[in-house]
Design a protein around this nucleic acid. Structure first.
Lengths: 136, 136
DNA sequence: CGTTACGCTGACGTTAACGTCAACCGCCCT
DNA sequence: AGGGCGGTTGACGTTAACGTCAGCGTAACG
């Protein structure tokens, strides 16, 4: 029974939970995307690490690079007492939002096109099935 | 005046139109994503090539690999008189549609989260600006 | 008729994002 | 004491998606 002591998870528990390899987690750590605690040499992943990893994997699915993702991760856990820093972060987030909304618009368009194509395909298949190989 | 003879475009015209490099176009050709005509040795890109390139670039923005894209490009220009082939293509398109709709759902979620985060950030910035460094 | 510009074909280099492998450590079990 | 498991650190390999460079052809320009 691989229990989850307190709030921390081992690397293997993380791998099972997120379907990634240990190598991937260590790689992300090397790239400073996550920064788990240490119990001796072992890594211990906290709630924060899990939240970040979730965002990382999501970002990847949207086609962002790890570097892109790294820069936007800070948007989600502000530690800022620093005003100019906060404003910069805010501006960055706005840009990011604009990008994602544009992406959404394009995605909708692509989906619509594909649906059209699908409908045409279905019709065509039905015709072929009914009329054999004969074309009008 | 780089005219566009008939319907064909040179590689440079393509590059200017789509903001890609010649290398990229030749690379896509090597990967059999596009197949321009030849005038001697020179490549001539047709309307079909342009349509495909548009889909390719769009696919990339959604995070698909070129190989993924290559397989789905055939969905858009069917030449099928072959029924089993058509049905296979159809099935593939359905899967693709499901993936894209899932992606849209996730994108919507991500956008919502980011907006929440943005609102919180805006509030925080406003407070800091009003109250100085003092926290409640 | 030289040369400048565009295009073509290899061939090798590069970057991101990991995979793989070796060697090592600490812990638990028998 | 030995063995296995889980974890760690390098170090090198790999794949995708191009970039870059050399060498060649040819069409147009002055």
């Amino acid at each position: 029974m691989t229990a989850r002591t307190d709030d921390h998870m081992t690397i293997r528990q993380m791998c099972d939970a997120f379907e990634v390899t240990p190598r991937t987690l260590r790689f992300y750590e090397a790239k400073e995307l996550i920064s788990p605690l240490r119990e001796g040499a072992r890594r211990l992943y906290t709630r924060r690490d899990r939240a970040r990893l979730k965002l990382i994997l999501r970002g990847k699915r949207f086609g962002f690079s790890l570097e892109d993702i790294r820069q936007t991760l800070d948007l989600y856990d502000r530690q800022g007492t620093n005003l100019p820093q906060m404003e910069h972060t805010f501006a960055l987030a706005c840009e990011r939002l604009a990008i994602m909304e544009a992406q959404r618009a394009e995605l909708d368009e692509a989906i619509a096109e594909l649906k059209t194509e699908l409908a045409a395909g279905a019709t065509l298949i039905a015709e072929v099935k009914r009329g054999g190989t004969a074309a009008a």
